[in-house]
């Protein structure tokens, strides 16, 4: 080996040889801090690994949840996952719709179903499930005590009085009439095709908004002439809620490049209840809630009209439910 320049002497040795030094060499503060930090990190890391298996559910836990749902779930129920990304539950809740959204307590989907089973994992590292459950407690009603299956927590919720969805327009497309400027579109529950082009149809589809799944009605505007989706006999007491947005890269296209806003007009019993506008270059999902006080009791005719001054790249999709 080549002779190398020696590094500075370790502080401990230097202290030991200093005149008047104590008989025992010093353990320098910096080294004590380093050692303390190292031991603390080792302890924290080992605690993490020791605790981890107990924080992760096993297949038997999911199967127990599955049995509970098979026994107690009713048609129309749904399952929500907390945290939203912990999707393994999907493998065990066959047939039930799954809601997997990060801000569940603020979502319209929390009140879409008559009963919502929340499958929560509050023990997962960094999980915000406990906080979300507390927020859900403020918005919804617990219909049964929470049940634990290992680290899994199953809580049954229902909407508060007057908040339950009474009609799901996206799910009930088969009952709708669709026309473009009076010209009817053909089809059924899977979708209705109109005449202006392959893009000119209305259908329930999954689309990505802010990296999250939204089931919504594809309703590409054709221009100033309205694309109208009409429903008869809609039970509605309080109003409408839902959301809308432009799909994919179309959402990024700005008004400065000539892309037009999209208007979604809501008509109740023939009268215009509201017009919602989505500006060009405004990506993401845009939730809305329309309170309709003074609505007459009984069933109503509800229509949605979609239009845009220029329909180019207006890949519009909306979701709505009455309550």
């Amino acid at each position: 080996m080549t002779a190398l320049p020696a590094r500075v002497a370790p502080a401990a040795t230097a202290a030991a040889s200093a005149p008047g030094a104590p008989s025992r060499p010093a353990f320098p503060l910096s080294r004590r801090l380093e050692g303390g930090l190292l031991l603390a990190s080792v302890a924290a890391a080992l605690v993490f690994w020791i605790r981890l298996p107990g924080r992760l559910p096993g297949e038997e836990d999911y199967l127990a949840v599955q049995h509970a749902l098979v026994a107690d779930a009713r048609p129309g129920d749904a399952v929500a996952l907390l945290p939203f990304w912990a999707e393994r539950g999907k493998l065990f809740v066959h047939g039930l719709p799954v809601v997997a959204l990060p801000d569940l307590p603020d979502e319209a989907d929390a009140e879409r179903y008559p009963r919502l089973w929340v499958l929560a994992q509050p023990d997962l590292p960094r999980s915000d499930a406990a906080a979300d459950l507390a927020r859900l407690d403020r918005r919804l009603t617990r219909l049964a005590p929470a049940r634990r299956f290992g680290p899994l927590l199953l809580v049954l919720y229902g909407p508060r009085a007057g908040r339950a969805a009474t009609y799901d327009f996206t799910a009930r497309l088969g009952a709708a009439r669709v026309d473009v400027d009076g010209e009817p579109c053909e089809g059924g529950a899977g979708g209705l095709r109109c005449s202006r082009g392959p893009w000119n149809y209305v259908a329930p589809e999954w689309h990505e908004f802010d990296f999250l799944p939204r089931r919504c009605l594809w309703a590409h505007p054709v221009g100033e002439a309205p694309l109208t989706i009409s429903y008869d006999g809609v039970p509605m007491e309080g109003g409408l809620r839902g959301g809308f947005g432009l799909v994919g890269g179309a959402a990024e296209l700005p008004a400065s490049r000539g892309f037009a806003p999209v208007e979604l007009a809501v008509l109740v019993d023939g009268g215009q209840a509201a017009t919602l506008t989505l500006s060009a270059g405004d990506p993401g999902w845009h939730p809305f809630e329309l309170s309709l006080p003074g609505l007459a009791e009984g069933r109503h005719e509800v229509a949605f009209q979609v239009r845009a001054r220029d329909p180019a790249m207006r890949h519009f999709c909306f979701d709505a439910a009455a309550f």
Binding site: A12, R31, R32, E34
Partner: peptide
């Protein structure tokens, strides 16, 4: 370094 300093003290 930590080990050396600790061993020097103990």
């Amino acid at each position: 370094g930590v080990a050396a300093a600790a061993a020097a003290r103990f």
